[in-house]
């Protein structure tokens, strides 16, 4: 469904953070993207949402060429984004945050889907609360739900477990796995937390110096594959 070829992107002055990234995702896959800090994972995510312009390369999503299209076109085409640091609208209520997720997709007469407050029950309890007052884990759930109410076909998650208490990390992993199973949602997740990856992903790609440097399909025992971990993850 997603076909990415030879992406080059980075600073305007010419530094190439992405240096020829190519990969593809099949519908319904859950793929984790691993790598050390500074290898270009977040930059890759930002190009896949159109927030960062490409210097070279192409992005094709479900037969639509999205190369250097404006950011909102990526979202309209069905790419949902949960950014690093969550980026919820802190001054808005939980409900207004979720509304932002549907307004862009369905126009100003959009309504929230019925299950908007069922997936993560805490969001229902805090419906009118200001998002800025939520805990990190709750904000993460809100950011995920904000993307999901827009009914994406591909969900991009950037470090969803960062700075969040373990019980909520587990809840998020289980919930996402269930939603993917039930709806056929494709997920690309950047993670440092191997447990989270093992609970969710069916395939792993490793990133190094702005390129996809390796991959593996055996995820279940990832933490025992010391050669891969040593090569791509340890410092």
């Amino acid at each position: 469904m997603l076909e990415v070829k030879n992406l080059v992107a980075g600073y305007r002055s010419g530094g190439r953070v992405l240096d020829g990234v190519s990969f593809s995702l099949a519908a319904g896959e859950i793929v984790a993207l691993l790598g050390r800090n500074g290898m270009g994972k977040t930059t890759l995510m930002r190009t896949l949402t159109g927030q960062l312009q490409l210097q070279e390369g192409s992005i094709n999503f479900e037969g639509t060429d999205l190369t250097n299209r404006p950011s909102f076109r990526f979202a309209k085409a069905g790419i949902g984004y949960v950014p690093q640091g969550r980026e919820v609208f802190t001054d808005f209520s939980v409900e207004q945050n979720l509304m932002m997720g549907v307004l862009g997709k369905d126009g100003i007469f959009a309504r929230l889907p019925d299950n908007a407050f069922d997936v993560f029950p805490i969001l229902g309890e805090r419906r009118q609360q200001r998002a800025g007052t939520l805990s990190g884990g709750q904000q993460q759930q809100l950011a995920i739900m904000r993307a999901l109410v827009g009914r994406p076909k591909l969900l991009l998650l950037d470090e969803p477990s960062e700075g969040i208490q373990p019980s909520i990390v587990d809840e998020i992993a289980v919930t996402l796995a269930r939603i993917a199973r039930e709806t056929g949602l494709t997920i690309l997740v950047v993670e440092q937390n191997l447990e989270f990856v093992q609970a969710l992903a069916s395939r792993v790609m490793f990133m190094e110096n702005g390129r996809i440097a390796g991959a593996t399909d055996t995820v279940a025992d990832l933490h025992t594959q010391t050669d891969l971990i040593h090569r791509y993850l340890s410092i």
């Binding site: 949402t49 159109g50 927030q51 404006p70 950011s71 909102f72 990526f74 979202a75 309209k76 984004y81 950014p83 980026e87 609208f89 802190t90 001054d91 808005f92 932002m100 997720g101 307004l103 862009g104 997709k105 904000r146 993307a147 827009g150």
Partner: peptide, 16 residues
């Protein structure tokens, strides 16, 4: 107001 608060994120939610 969403666009004022966070332009890039709003765009990634599909807002033109």
């Amino acid at each position: 107001r969403g666009v004022i608060a966070n332009r890039a994120m709003s765009a990634s939610l599909g807002i033109n």
